[in-house]
Amino acid sequence: MATATWRTAKPQARREAIEGYISLLPWMIGFVGFTAIPLAASVYLGFTQWNIIEPPQWIGLDNYVRMFTRDPLFWQALKVTLGFVALSLPLKLVFGLGLALLLNLKIPGMNFFRTVFYIPAVISGVAVSLMWMWLLQPDTGVVNTMLYFLGIQGPNWFWDPNWALPSVAMMSVWKVGGSAVIYLAGLQNIPAHLYEAAQIDGAGRWARFWRITLPLLTPTLFFQLIIEMIDSFKVFTEAFVITQGGPLKATYFYLLYFYEEAFQNFNMGYASALALVLTIIILLATVFVNYTSKRWVFYESE
């Protein structure tokens, strides 16, 4: 099909195609040189048993058979991860947008507030995990102390099998300062004349939000949905540093299992298979979201 159109294409279309490939050139060089080979290598390794140190041994589909038929940890990790995606994704999207709308107000001192809300995104790794453990410590933590004064007995957060997952979700929501930045950029692309027109029609703030801001922000929302979804599926650091997957495997995330297999259990072949399955799951979810996007994402240019 493609070649047929190519041959019959008008010179103008052909020139555009060449320009298109030229524009993609940097990415294609990077992909072929530095992504495709590692990718192919890990697909291959998924069919092997490899302890990293000695040469890999081909074992066919064994890794995949084991994963789907007799590996309770795989299912546990998948269940926990899907639960986390379902819990954290809507929260992150809503809070990120809400924060961005707030930060988009042009009032004095906003530069200060924008910087403050960005702090959580800046502190990373060990320091932020420690901070959360300290905040959520059941007896002495700030959160439960505040709840105590409100007459509420706070939960054990990370250390309670029922609360560990919501606690990690809370942590990720706290970091929305980063995604608010992206919403903020998206908001700048909404032409002002639309607001003026709507105002002449007598639309109130709420109506303007629903009829202008939200529809015109859908390309950004679409981006955020995909990116946050990928991020949520790949949740790792929080569990790795704080909960180690516990208690009772309540936060045993997929990538934690992957990491344990790859670097602590020296089962790189199996880990590669796990990574491939996760990639396919995320890919399917992305394709699905992309499919639905035709109905709800609005591009001014199309």
């Binding site: 060990v126 995990s129 420690l130 453990m133 300290w134 410590q137 059941p138 007896d139 002495t140 933590g141 054990n156 957060w157 990370f158 250390w159 540093v241 704080i242 208690p247």
Partner: peptide
Amino acid sequence: PTPADLEVLGT
């Protein structure tokens, strides 16, 4: 000390 007490600043 419970795990919560031990881990509060020391992972």
